[in-house]
């Protein structure tokens, strides 16, 4: 077979109230088969109540080379954190 079987990323919600989390990847021919494989590979011990599968080629990822321009601007904005504000010790409930 010349064609590679597509790669999928698997996200599992472990219980209601929690977000779906990436847990790994797998190969499958289409979404339905990816879903069936994800159930067998990643939820053999009740690890999940809900599964998302996303074909890997549809994910746009940031590149580590651009990390500084993406994330550094946030590091000097200490005023976004509550501890930046100096208030008297006797102040309560704040």
């Amino acid at each position: 077979m010349s064609k590679e079987i597509p790669l999928w990323e698997v996200f599992i919600r472990s219980k209601n109230g929690l977000e779906h989390r990436h847990c790994g990847s797998l190969h499958a021919e289409d979404a339905e088969m990816a879903m069936n494989n994800a159930r067998d590979v990643y939820t053999r011990r009740n690890e999940g109540v809900s599964i998302w599968v996303v074909e890997s080629k549809n994910i746009t990822a940031s590149s580590p080379e651009h990390s500084s321009e993406l994330f550094e601007p946030a590091t000097d904005k200490v005023y976004r954190h509550p501890t930046f504000y100096e208030l008297p010790d006797e102040l309560k409930h704040m």
Binding site: E4, I5, G24, S25, L26, D40, V41, R44
Partner: peptide
């Protein structure tokens, strides 16, 4: 049966991890 199925799972987790280094499953 469950144990052998787990080993298949272990192989699959590890192949996926390996593929992130730029080699295909094939």
């Amino acid at each position: 049966l469950a144990k052998v199925q787990d080993e298949a799972g272990h192989g699959l987790y590890l192949y996926s991890a390996c593929e992130t280094l730029g080699i295909t499953r094939e």
